[in-house]
Amino acid sequence: MEQITINTHLDGFVLIDKISAIDENNIKGTKHFSGFPAPLAIESLAQLGALHVRFITGFEKHCFLLKINNCKIPEIQELNGPYQLEGSLLGKSKQAFSYSLRATKDCKTPLEGRFTFAAIDYDERFKKELLQRHHKKILTCFNLCD
């Protein structure tokens, strides 16, 4: 089988540097971007929301981004410097979670949207023993990193 190499120009694919606050309904974090295309902040926000879903479900669920509504992207080519990432839980069911998520720098026009995630039980494809430990470790690392 032919091997394909994909260069994302990223050092890893975790696009959050730190979680500064997290509770049942809200999550805050930061990301220092260095010449990233603006839409990549959408991925940061998706990761922030997914982390919150995992947190409030006690890391007992695997989750996916389902949909983004009302997404606003600022008219800039590149993201540079530290961005505040914030999320608020708008609504939830047993299987779905909706958030208002935004990325701001110096209180200027944010990148924001309404993100909906689905949460499912771990299974053969998404193995609990691997993923649960991985995501717990990531949250621990975010909380410790300054």
């Binding site: 609504g91 069911s93 779905a96 909706s98």
Partner: peptide
């Protein structure tokens, strides 16, 4: 799924 979270929210 969207309906479910909308009902919960509103």
């Amino acid at each position: 799924l969207e309906l479910a979270v909308a009902f919960n929210s509103s």
